[in-house]
Amino acid sequence: MPVIPAPFSYHRPKSLAEATALLAEHNDEARVLAGGQSLIPMMKFRLAAPEHLVDVGNISELKGIQRTGNTLIVGAMTTQHELQQSQMLSEAAPILKETSLLIADPQVRYMGTIGGNVANGDPGNDMPAVMLCLDAAYRLTSVTGTRTIKARDFYEGTYATALKTGEILTAIEIPVPPAGHGHAYEKLKRKIGDYATAAAGVVLTTRGGRITTCAIAISNLADKAILATDAAAAVIGTALEKPTLDKAIAAARSIMSPATDTRGTTEYRTSVGGIMVERALKCALARAKG
């Protein structure tokens, strides 16, 4: 198996305008290079062979983390390592750091970016489910302008997303979850650094110990990250009593369709997928204040 990528031309634009122009010029033959921690392995195995690589690592407009009002704006080129260092993000939406620490290993997190993680389209990526829970939106820019799309409308299937040829994801907009919300991301993996055998994220709010709002999303249990809406509906208004929990787990399992692979059979992964949903719900409820 070759481990040397096919030849390509390399571009390192200094501005977003220059980058979108390069993408427009080379169209289907061009690919954005962010942290390279998914794309370079794919190129080494010749699963990807772009003729032009547009390295967006030098564009300052894609960096940085800000808060404007009740929205967090995270630049696409923010690395996992930088995300973990942000006190502001950890306080406003702690699920981001918690999940980030469960991704890959230190070296991959120094290079890998939040934008690459959500734009990649691999159902094994962990951040898409978190973005579904938080109801984040993605800012996409091309030579023709900028549009914003909800994470909930972005994922179409394995390596299939709403990102169009010529578009760059520039930032992620995250509504700040209410103070006192509960959150959890539970991930079962064979070893540290591995992709999920099954994983689930939860963001919820409570009042008098009862769940008032809830979003549940699952990773690597279908051809894309998905929101478990029926499971979330089942727990609203409850304090997660056993029958409620069982109902939610069954609803979540009914939308799982993991492939049988080296991480386990479809049956096993669906079974543990339910357990991840259960753990994430219990943990999020225990953490919620309200």
């Binding site: 390279g36 370079i40 390592h81 230190p106 070296q107 991959v108």
Partner: peptide, 9 residues
Amino acid sequence: KSVKSCTVF
């Protein structure tokens, strides 16, 4: 930063 130099051009 610690990087895996097999995964950086």
